[in-house]
């Protein structure tokens, strides 16, 4: 299928955003501390604010969580395509608009789809989290073949840079935020990494 590239309309807003994230890892962390950190990381990764867009092979985003009732695919027959941005069908940006400079209040506008100062999109196919177990997500996240070639620091920096992830803790509307905070989640990633990225056995 031929389709236009949206390059001209993809605007990575230059506006400075939200909180500064401290990326300092702990000097040491035991395996037990790492596993405790992982349990909290899994609470975040499996939360609807994150997992609804981590749908693996499926290009249908999900609607699930306390504000949606029964889990179901995103309404309006939305498909993200291979681009994961809907470029082949309806771009996510047709509703998840991006241009606001008032990001503190960007999701306070009533009756609007969530938005961030980046192009809305699904996570890569490899980051398959929706409905997955703690072990499955843990093994994906620590495998450079499946996590975009990232080590611990790169994972933490990814959380700092990718503003769509920040939205999970500031989703607006009646959406339940992801648990803990962005900084606490980054701290847990760093503890888990320093502890050697341990995964639970059961």
């Amino acid at each position: 299928m031929k389709y236009r590239l949206l390059a001209a309309t993809i605007v990575i807003a230059a506006s400075p955003l939200l909180a500064e994230v401290d990326l300092t890892p702990p000097e040491s962390a035991s395996e037990a501390e790492g596993l405790e950190a992982w349990a909290r990381i899994y609470e975040v990764a499996s939360h609807p604010r994150c997992s609804n867009c981590h749908t693996g092979e499926s290009d249908h985003p999900m609607w699930s969580g306390p504000s949606y009732g029964q889990a179901r695919p995103h309404g309006m027959n939305i498909r993200a395509g291979e681009s994961r941005m809907g470029v082949e069908y309806i771009p996510c940006q047709a509703c998840h608009t991006t241009m606001s400079e008032d990001w503190e209040n960007a999701n306070a506008m009533p009756h609007t789809a969530p938005r961030v100062p980046m192009f809305w999109q699904l996570a890569p196919v490899e980051a398959d989290w929706f409905g997955r177990s703690s072990i499955e997500i843990c093994e994906q996240l620590r495998d450079p073949e499946l996590n975009g070639g990232r080590d611990t620091m790169a994972l933490a920096e990814h959380l700092d840079h990718d503003l769509i992830l920040h939205w999970a803790w500031n989703p607006g509307g009646n959406r339940e935020p992801a648990p803990y905070s962005l900084q606490e989640h980054v701290d847990d990633i760093l503890i888990w990494g320093v502890a050697g990225m341990p995964c639970p056995e059961s």
Binding site: T9, V11, Q93, C95, T97, M99, S100, E101, M109, T112
Partner: peptide, 18 residues
């Protein structure tokens, strides 16, 4: 907006570019 279909109920006028 610049040739791309958008839902005009979702786009704040302050965010319109195009």
């Amino acid at each position: 907006v610049d040739g791309f279909a958008v839902r005009s109920c979702q786009l704040a006028i302050g965010d319109l570019q195009g």
